[in-house]
Simulated assay, not measured.
Amino acid sequence: MKFDEYLSEKKIDSAKYKHAEPAQYEEFLKIFDQMHPESFTQQKLFLINKIRRAYLLEENVDTKKVVAPKAMRPKIKPLKPKTS
């Protein structure tokens, strides 16, 4: 996984972040290349949340999940006992 993919997964706009804070971006890139993404997340969790709030990735309408409306359940009527 590349750092830009990781940032988009965390809903961070990598282009805006790289342009606004190039020194921190390069530092995080070097650290990210040396460890597993989950370890990076655990180590930089509070900073990632702060960065996400500052450089939130705008989602396209096409990429949002479409949720189907809930289907109506059929009503089941109990059987009447046969009387002979």
Rank of each mutant, 00 (worst) to 15 (best):
M1E: 14
M1S: 13
F3K: 07
F3H: 08
E5I: 09
Y6H: 06
Y6V: 06
S8R: 13
S8Q: 12
K10V: 10
K10G: 10
K11L: 15
K11T: 14
K11V: 14
I12N: 02
I12P: 01
D13E: 09
D13T: 04
S14F: 05
A15M: 08
A15S: 07
A15V: 11
K16D: 13
K16T: 10
Y17V: 02
K18L: 11
A20S: 14
A20F: 09
E21A: 14
E21C: 12
E21T: 12
A23H: 15
A23Y: 15
Q24I: 15
Q24S: 13
E26V: 11
E26T: 11
F28V: 01
L29F: 06
K30Q: 10
I31S: 04
D33S: 09
D33W: 02
Q34L: 05
Q34V: 01
Q34F: 04
M35R: 10
M35H: 05
P37H: 11
P37V: 15
P37F: 06
E38S: 11
E38Q: 14
F40C: 05
T41V: 15
Q43I: 11
Q43A: 09
K44L: 10
L45K: 11
L47I: 01
L47N: 12
L47V: 01
I48L: 05
N49K: 13
K50F: 15
R52W: 02
R53S: 03
R53A: 03
Y55C: 06
L56R: 07
L57N: 04
L57W: 02
E58A: 07
E59C: 12
E59K: 12
E59T: 12
N60E: 04
D62M: 12
K65V: 00
K65C: 00
V66H: 00
V67N: 00
A68E: 00
P69G: 00
P69R: 00
K70L: 00
M72E: 07
M72I: 00
R73S: 03
K75T: 07
P78Y: 02
P78C: 01
P78A: 02
L79R: 14
K82L: 10
K82G: 02
T83H: 06
